[in-house]
Write a protein that binds this DNA or RNA. Structure first.
Lengths: 230, 230
DNA sequence: TCAAAAGTGTTGAGTTTACACCCATGC
DNA sequence: GCATGGGTGTAAACTCAACACTTTTGA
């Protein structure tokens, strides 16, 4: 058993955040090499005895100083043999979401040259990272409708209008406010808190909280989260 | 840029076939090495300048002598550092479906020691292949409801009852025959042919044919295939 | 003529859509 | 008191679930 191979294994993370009514992606600046001054996804080579998912978490810590709230494997990019012009690299891409609070934290921290970019204002990207982000974006759009992952992009407590706006923005669609609220509340996975949002103008909305225990409980009993739009 | 790594990249294929009212998985027998006499998925190491998807197709050709009708990337297994006890191997698993005709062809061919096993009568498997098959099976179950992939498990022409039975078997559920047929036909992606099935007993059923052009056409216009059960 | 499987319609329940006005707050 | 955004109900259209008898064929 002496297979020789000259292929490297890397991981990349597409981290989404949501703030000021926009979906953002976390990018870092390449500091050296061929692609200096290009922006790229957080990522790097996997260590010999390191599980893939740990490699991603390590890179997120090292390069951007964050831990994420939701992480799942997205896709492995390895059909284009020259996606990295320097050598054959197969990259396992991960899809991640962070709560808005943490989002703020990183945006401030610039120990590393990391920044959030609105999804529709991305700078020129290294390698095939633009394509990877498109794949991740479609996954996010798809999942939003049948898994309660939108909550991982909001703070723990949020007004209903933020949730609604998140869906409108990411799915790029109009939603009937009344029907959306009715449906969302009918699941019984949101709790109304006593607090209200602080707003510039208009009537303050009550803050809600996603009850993940309740959700898991219902899910075990066969409940499926599903939200669609006209 | 001189990263040293001691990780191998492999691909594995989970090939599903459907025959005699049962879902089957294609396995091959390990002929040598540590796991002699164990059954395993078709798979092997990726060549240095070979795209991942080509590697799978090559392995399918070399080890089982088939080409498949549907192929998509499933998941990359690389969290368990010792999934292959000999060395660190990251395996990109692919999910494949073959039409029943081709299914027959392989079942006969035994140039390689390849066999079909009913999904619920699997022999002891090499490495983490049992787990990989479970993942693939869940993917199949999930996709059946919102993508017309069941047709890739049937011959080109099939009686309605075979389609219905395929759904029942794979999803492990009972289906109302009338409602199922009504829904399926309402999509307008099936064509009734003039031919009838040849049967041991009972009234022969008309043969149907999946019209993939029509499906792609409708899909572009926003149609979504979706079939659920009570 | 009997056994086996194919083919077919209707009704009630539940869900989804469309739609507009009043309410609380800050300035 | 006015501008801003929050909160709420109902009726019509549609979709889904439940359900049983007739038809065709071969033995």
């Amino acid at each position: 058993m002496n297979i020789q191979q000259n292929i490297r294994v890397a991981v990349d993370a597409i981290v989404f955040g949501y703030s000021r009514r926009q979906l953002h992606v976390l990018l870092i600046r390449q500091k050296f090499g061929l692609l200096k001054d290009r922006w790229a996804l957080v990522g790097g080579f996997v260590q010999d005895h390191e599980p893939l998912s740990e490699a991603v978490q390590r890179e997120l810590r090292e390069e951007a100083g964050i831990s994420v709230d939701y992480l799942e494997q997205l896709y492995t990019f390895g059909d284009d043999v020259h996606r990295d012009p320097r050598m054959r690299v197969v990259s396992v891409a991960y899809f991640a979401l962070v709560h808005t609070e943490k989002y703020q934290l990183i945006a401030d921290s610039d120990a590393e040259d990391a920044r959030w970019f609105p999804i529709d204002e991305l700078p020129p990207l290294a390698f095939d990272h633009a394509r990877i982000i498109q794949t991740a974006y479609r996954r996010l759009q798809g999942k939003l409708s049948y898994q309660p992952i939108g909550f991982d992009l909001l703070p723990e407590h949020f007004p209903f209008s933020d949730l609604e706006n998140l869906y409108c923005t990411i799915l790029n669609t109009e939603i009937d406010r009344r029907n959306f609220r009715k449906k969302m509340l009918s699941f019984g996975i949101l709790e109304e808190t006593e607090h209200s949002a602080i707003q510039k103008s208009g009537r303050p909305g009550k803050l809600f909280k996603f009850n993940s225990l309740k959700y898991n409980d219902l899910k075990e009993k066969g409940f499926v989260f599903e939200i669609k739009f006209a």
